[in-house]
Nucleic acid binder design. Structure first.
Lengths: 239, 239
DNA sequence: GTACGGGTTAAGACAGGGTTAACGGATACG
DNA sequence: CGTATCCGTTAACCCTGTCTTAACCCGTAC
């Protein structure tokens, strides 16, 4: 189930969008101003978010900037009547991923929402991280030619973490992504993390993959060589 | 350096685009038909690709489909004069990530290219000061390729100081920024400053970074030669 | 000398993560 | 119909990392 957030002060338009997305099996939460949106995005896990620009309390551009400042790189679609080039560039400058001008066709909105949402958590059949291969169709995970033995929840958990890699995910976000709305009220997550770690450590010869704990935040899975690549890239790069 | 591919049969338009991207430090290879594009994409590595739809040999939609079938999930931007809704939906259906209608402003093209290229390649929000890199997304701090071991508070403290650099920050301001309203009533700040200093000094080979004490005022972190804070990230670097 | 600002260090409290085992529900199979 | 197995949740327990606190050090200014 795709889960997205709409931040829009026009209640009628918002209702229309929510309804339309619902038909397409996309669950859409709604906030009517920027502050409320910021609140929701930090508490829940969304695949992407849509932002109106003109809004009371906090406008869309500011919210977009704030979200990026906080280091969240959730895909963002700007949704506004301002169609000048400067406005668009401003939107991209603030860190948005797409820009749709009102009035727009609902079907185009749906298409763009799906694209943005699925890029990170979509229909890609194989996820590769270091020497770990996740085959989503077969629900199989292979680490250095060894097939890991993972329960359904453990597999989902690993999938979620690999998708976010190398970024850490907050506990709440992980819970939401794995269990949805009916979450266990205990330390179940800890146990499953433990199971996943045990499986990853089974092929001990792989210091390549680390499921790290970010204290006070959550967890992150990283391929060891990624960090090095980034630094190397940094030298030649960063124009 | 960003590396992208353009598949377009209109030679003049292609040349214009290549030139324009070059100015923005984006290297752009060019193929004049679908088959050639397929060839190139399989031999080289690109951060994203732009596809014209109307082309001889193999049209853009077919190429897009083919690429997806091969399991390549490189971001694709459709580039075409067909602006009807049906055409757009067809484009998204084929697996593209964005759709830009001709004629378009070059600056908008550049913005969208950068967005598509950077999202995949893990370009994220970073604070850079001298040879220190703070990755807010990963919550990691690297100094000369060594990853610093920082507790949550120590990380926040360092972040606050780096953001203020090279300006000094008063004790009260720091406390407010790190702890908010519930501040410890002891010399806790001193201790955390000490921890941060210890981590910075660990790679002693860096005389580049100094966490200075401004007596009676507070603290300031500075890069030895260049006091300037460089921000790299979602925002397009416009140097 | 002493008062003060800052630096260093260690101890203790505590939260949070890690580990393990047991229970109950579901499913498959005999 | 009963048994075995798997899986997820829960809770109890242990252990590590983190933060605060306080004591002590040093230099300098008065």
């Amino acid at each position: 189930m795709i889960n997205v957030l709409l931040v829009e002060d026009d209640i009628d338009l918002a209702a229309t969008i929510v309804d339309y997305l619902d038909i397409e099996s996309i669950n859409c939460d709604h906030a009517s101003n920027g502050l409320m949106g910021l609140e929701l995005i930090q508490r829940n896990h969304y695949q992407m978010m849509m932002l109106d620009i003109n809004m009371p309390k906090m406008d869309g551009l500011t919210l977009c900037n704030t979200v990026r400042e906080k280091g969240l790189d959730i895909p963002i679609l700007m949704l506004t009547a301002r169609d000048s080039l400067e406005n668009k560039l401003q939107g991209f400058e603030a860190g948005s991923d797409d820009y749709l001008v009102k009035p727009f066709a609902m079907r185009e909105l749906v298409a763009r929402v799906q694209v943005l949402a699925k890029r990170r958590s979509g229909e890609v059949k194989r996820l590769v991280l270091g020497d770990l291969i996740l085959d989503l169709n077969q629900r199989s995970a292979q680490l250095q030619q060894r097939t890991l033995k993972l329960s359904p929840i453990a597999f989902k958990l690993l999938e979620v973490l690999v998708r976010a890699s190398p970024q850490p995910m907050g506990r709440q976000h992980i819970m939401q992504a794995v269990w949805g709305d009916e979450q266990p009220d205990s330390n179940s997550l800890k146990v499953h993390i433990h199971h996943v770690r045990k499986q990853l450590d089974a092929s001990k010869h792989s210091p390549l993959l680390k499921l790290e704990t970010i204290s006070g935040i959550g967890f992150a899975i990283k391929a060891a060589d990624q960090g090095d690549l980034e630094i190397v890239g940094n030298k030649n790069n960063e124009n």
